[in-house]
């Protein structure tokens, strides 16, 4: 029987048959989970750094690795997309751009792409 249930949270991530608003909904959830995981990781790493200068130097060396920088770019991308998508939700909640929510989403994601590219270049060339 197809009754609503919290156990069906995984259906939030099913993109089949979804429209633009649905894609925005999925993107917001995926980026939120990613950022929450990052926050956990961040706190774990910070606690490791407290063990001494050697641990700090080792960590900084690790973070200069291109794979680590790519992971950081992903965090930045998730933060930007989640934030701009959030602005879209706030605007529509207050009645702005409700009938243009698709265009609003595409516009904000185009802006997100530009900002992400800027940060990607900066982070890999710094």
């Amino acid at each position: 029987m197809e009754k609503p249930s919290p156990d069906k949270f995984w259906t939030w991530f099913n993109p089949v048959g979804r429209e633009t608003g649905g894609w925005a909904f999925i993107l917001n959830r995926v980026t939120a989970l990613g950022l929450t995981f990052y926050l956990y990781l961040h706190l774990v790493i910070l606690s490791q750094l407290a063990t001494g200068p050697q641990a700090y130097d080792q960590f900084v060396a690790l973070m200069r690795n291109p794979i680590s920088i790519s992971a950081e770019v992903l965090v930045v991308a998730a933060g930007i997309m989640h934030g701009l998508n959030g602005i879209r939700i706030v605007l529509t909640t207050f009645g702005f751009g409700v009938t243009r929510q698709k265009q609003l989403f595409y516009g904000l994601m185009a802006l997100a792409l530009v900002i992400i590219l800027f940060f990607t270049v900066r982070m890999f060339t710094a």
């Binding site: 429209e19 608003g21 649905g22 925005a24 909904f25 917001n28 879209r88 939700i89 529509t92 929510q101």
Partner: peptide, 9 residues
């Protein structure tokens, strides 16, 4: 409501 706009679609 979490603004998926699927209802209107």
């Amino acid at each position: 409501c979490h603004s998926a706009f699927e209802c209107s679609a």
